[in-house]
Write a protein that binds this DNA or RNA. Sequence first.
DNA 1: ATAACTGCAAACAATTTGCATCCTT
DNA 2: AAGGATGCAAATTGTTTGCAGTTAT
Lengths: 152, 152
Amino acid sequence: MESREELTSVLRNKGFRLTPQREKILDIFYTLPEGEHLSAEDLQNILRRENSDISLATSYRTLKLLASLGVLRELAFAEDHKHYELVRFESGVQHQHIICVECGSTEEFTCVEVFQTAVEIAQSHEFELIDAQLKLFGRCKRCQDKTSNLPV
Amino acid sequence: MESREELTSVLRNKGFRLTPQREKILDIFYTLPEGEHLSAEDLQNILRRENSDISLATSYRTLKLLASLGVLRELAFAEDHKHYELVRFESGVQHQHIICVECGSTEEFTCVEVFQTAVEIAQSHEFELIDAQLKLFGRCKRCQDKTSNLPV
DNA sequence: ATAACTGCAAACAATTTGCATCCTT
DNA sequence: AAGGATGCAAATTGTTTGCAGTTAT
């Protein structure tokens, strides 16, 4: 997905339709700062704020569809709901996430080796590689400080 | 968690109790072949098969507890339920997963660089590192073959 | 015209929780 | 004895689905 305009052809190629809802949702992802990801609920909040009334069911359906088309990437963090982010090929190197298991905050980082490693491993397992995600779990600075101040 | 016996002290240190249920569940994980992971439902099935009647609620509570104690690692794959596996320090290098998004099957691989990379990145982000997971998503050989036989 | 799409509400699956009872410590 | 743990059932959360009406192609 190099540009927003491509969505039309990606959809049509598979017999899907371009609806205002799908356009709007993709729009929101394109407007997001690079590296930011949304849960279905986050998305609903943004839509509501912008007075776009798209039902929750449609949001879920659209997120799934766009993920299956490779437009969005589905992310599972520590929480029990999924997040989605734009797959951006332009930047070349995908960013990865470091997640605080205590407060749920995430930060992005990039790691050039991940992709090369992934390609090699997928090859040796005869997998057709779709995506590689390196996730680090830990406690962020703020949460570390919080605990160290607590009485023992 | 170097040995099963340590569980007692790990629990007691934090004021938790050693119950037959917790022992049994940990036992099951120790009996598993290295690298194997269970969902709460998998665990229930094994328990039932062995005539250990532990309620589902207790299984969930125990999995969460052991994960929070660092005894088990919580894994989120493509499906919408979690998996758990033993954290084995003995082996030094943690294994990672390659997951087929079509049939859900997983294979393990090891990658020595992951840990070193993780340590460096955590440091630069001031995170206290707990775990690093490299996940590859793709389509396994079997599913590739399946599709290529389909009529277009 | 006709399939695909949407919104709604009901259904589901995975997980959590309140509470009475039970059992480690 | 006392507080943590369990089992049960009810509640919650995140997500999916059936269906009737709507809309892109």
